[in-house]
Simulated assay, not measured.
Amino acid sequence: MTLPWHFTPLSGERVTLDLLRADDLDALSAIQGDPTTVRYMLYSARTRDEVATAIERDGAHDRLENSGDYVQPAIRDAAGRLVGTLYVKLASTDDRTAEIGWLLSPGERGKGYATEAAEIILRLAFEELGLHRVYAELDPRNEASAAVCERLGMRHEAHLRENLWLKGEWVDTAVYAILEQDYRRRRI
């Protein structure tokens, strides 16, 4: 593996990933403060102050080196507007494994931004960092995120029934993953 890796902005055809910053507060508050938008997230709708704290915390994470390290960059459209966030965490350096996830503004869903942003991270993971496996854990009721996983070539590996007590109910977890060799086959 090629670590440590220090975050620098990453660009695709229509999106750029860069670190969260203080002027993202209004846009990110609209996303993370909406109960419908965060329905399938591990956290409930956040107040403006909680979002400000999250920006400060997550914006400071700009390095992947050890198991548990993460970056949570902003997903920006071609005009530079924040349309969502992406999450990548080194789950295990020994196993060369990372976790990935995304959250988009309701008005920006269905435009391919999550898929493009995740493709940028998969390219980084497999072509630069030398990871072996990247996975996503999500609520299987979140059909849009499951569809992103499938578009990325991730395989549905598991469906854990009622494994998590969240927001007053038992919820399931779906696990999707892609291996380095599967990623490389798709690139040919």
Results as ranks from 00 to 15, higher is better:
residue 1 M to S: 14
residue 1 M to K: 04
residue 7 F to T: 03
residue 8 T to D: 13
residue 8 T to S: 01
residue 11 S to H: 06
residue 13 E to W: 03
residue 14 R to P: 04
residue 16 T to S: 01
residue 16 T to Q: 06
residue 17 L to W: 06
residue 17 L to D: 09
residue 17 L to M: 12
residue 20 L to C: 03
residue 20 L to D: 10
residue 20 L to R: 13
residue 21 R to F: 06
residue 27 A to I: 03
residue 27 A to H: 05
residue 28 L to S: 02
residue 29 S to T: 11
residue 31 I to A: 05
residue 32 Q to W: 12
residue 34 D to V: 13
residue 35 P to F: 14
residue 35 P to K: 05
residue 37 T to C: 09
residue 38 V to P: 09
residue 42 L to V: 08
residue 43 Y to V: 07
residue 43 Y to E: 14
residue 50 E to Y: 03
residue 51 V to K: 05
residue 51 V to P: 07
residue 55 I to P: 08
residue 57 R to E: 15
residue 59 G to V: 03
residue 61 H to P: 13
residue 63 R to V: 01
residue 66 N to I: 02
residue 67 S to L: 05
residue 70 Y to H: 15
residue 73 P to A: 03
residue 79 A to N: 10
residue 82 L to A: 06
residue 82 L to S: 01
residue 83 V to M: 09
residue 89 K to E: 04
residue 90 L to N: 13
residue 92 S to E: 00
residue 93 T to G: 00
residue 93 T to M: 00
residue 94 D to E: 04
residue 96 R to Y: 10
residue 97 T to K: 14
residue 99 E to I: 06
residue 99 E to A: 15
residue 102 W to A: 02
residue 104 L to N: 09
residue 105 S to H: 02
residue 106 P to A: 02
residue 108 E to R: 11
residue 108 E to C: 10
residue 108 E to L: 03
residue 109 R to D: 03
residue 111 K to F: 12
residue 112 G to C: 07
residue 113 Y to I: 12
residue 113 Y to Q: 01
residue 114 A to R: 00
residue 115 T to V: 04
residue 122 L to Q: 07
residue 122 L to F: 11
residue 123 R to L: 13
residue 125 A to T: 09
residue 126 F to W: 11
residue 126 F to A: 07
residue 127 E to F: 05
residue 128 E to R: 07
residue 129 L to A: 08
residue 130 G to N: 06
residue 130 G to Q: 01
residue 130 G to D: 15
residue 131 L to T: 05
residue 135 Y to Q: 12
residue 135 Y to W: 04
residue 137 E to Q: 11
residue 137 E to T: 14
residue 142 N to F: 07
residue 143 E to G: 09
residue 144 A to H: 03
residue 146 A to V: 09
residue 147 A to K: 12
residue 147 A to F: 01
residue 148 V to M: 00
residue 148 V to H: 07
residue 148 V to Q: 09
residue 149 C to Q: 06
residue 150 E to A: 12
residue 150 E to Q: 08
residue 151 R to D: 14
residue 155 R to M: 04
residue 161 R to Y: 10
residue 164 L to Y: 10
residue 168 G to P: 08
residue 171 V to N: 08
residue 171 V to L: 08
residue 171 V to S: 14
residue 172 D to V: 05
residue 173 T to G: 02
residue 176 Y to I: 08
residue 177 A to F: 13
residue 179 L to F: 11
residue 180 E to F: 12
residue 180 E to Q: 09
residue 184 R to M: 14
residue 185 R to E: 04
residue 188 I to P: 08
